[in-house]
Each structure stands twice: as C-alpha cells, then as structure tokens.
C-alpha cells in the first residue's frame, strides 16, 4: 500500500503494508534512525515520536492508522523551542551514558513540557515512567527536564 506521511514538515511516500509500525517505516524505509527500537511492544519508550504534538510509541503505531497526522522525530525536535531548550539542558549536565534511550527520553520530556510548562517531580516521574534507561541516568534526566523548564539551575543533581 502507498502512504503519504508528513514527517518533520516534509511529505514522504512509502509503499508498505498497512500494519507496518511507524518505527520501521522511519528506520528502514526513510533512514531516520534517530528513533530507536528497544522492545517493539510499548514497554520502553525508546521509539517515542510526536504525532500531532503528542508523545506516541512508534513501535505500536500502524502506518495505516496515521492518516494526515503530523509526525515529528528526534532529528527535528531541535527546531521546536522546547525541544531546543531540552537538548541544551541535556548537554549542560551531560545526561547520557550509552545514550541509546535518550532520543525517546527527550521526545517524551518535550511532550510533557508542552502540556505542563513547570512540572513537579511527581509529574515528571509520571510522564517519564514509560521510558526505560538501562544505564539509569534518571537523576540527570529529571534534572535536565527541571533545568529546561526553568525550575532549576543547571548542574544540580540530587
């Protein structure tokens, strides 16, 4: 089946089965490999993208269900004001160890800050609990989100 997808502001045409998850369209059809495969079952958040601004697990999104939705991936999240702020905060305190989960973390955090500009720790925990970091950089992820939200100065990690 042919599909027209709007991804990062550009229209892409792909010819794939309707059931193919968006994750594999991004990675293997379009070469957008920033979005990561971790579990394929909605359990880890590594594959998180934005669909009309909301954080979604792309491993569970069948391409046939996307319609005219606007999709954004990690490759272009820096073009949004909140995304750029988060990337800066991520670098200021160097959140990552292996880094594999971080695209998903940033995408989920970005959706959180778009909804709740100054989240509490409990709100951060609740929003981020679906994103696994096997290296367990959780203190710094939380701290970077606070920094990007302007509720904390960079460099503080409790």
């Amino acid at each position: 089946m042919g599909y027209r997808l709007e991804i990062n502001g550009a229209v892409h045409e792909v010819d794939v089965p309707a059931e193919m998850p968006l994750l594999w369209v991004l990675r293997d059809e379009l070469g957008l490999v920033g979005t990561k495969y971790g579990c394929g079952r909605g359990l880890c958040g590594a594959c998180t993208v934005h669909v009309d601004g909301a954080a979604q697990r792309s491993c569970l999104l069948r391409v046939g269900s996307l319609g005219k939705a606007k999709i954004r991936t990690i490759e272009q999240i820096g073009a949004t004001e909140i995304g750029a702020r988060l990337q800066r905060a991520w670098l200021e305190i160097d959140v990552m160890q292996c880094g594999y989960c971080q695209a998903g973390q940033i995408m989920t955090a970005c959706a959180l800050l778009s909804r709740t500009s100054q989240p509490s720790d409990a709100e951060i925990n609740a929003a981020m609990t679906g994103n696994i970091c096997r290296c367990a950089c959780y203190h710094r992820i939380r701290s970077a989100i606070r920094t990007a939200a302007g509720v904390e100065e960079a460099g503080h990690v409790a």
């Binding site: 490999v33 920033g34 990690i74 999240i77 670098l91 160097d94 990552m96 971080q102 695209a103 940033i106």
Partner: peptide
C-alpha cells in the same frame, strides 16, 4: 553527546 541529542546515527 551533542550527536546523541539530535538522534544522529
């Protein structure tokens, strides 16, 4: 790190 936050391969 600067490449990781942008999702570079």
């Amino acid at each position: 790190s600067h490449r990781i936050v942008k999702g570079e391969p």
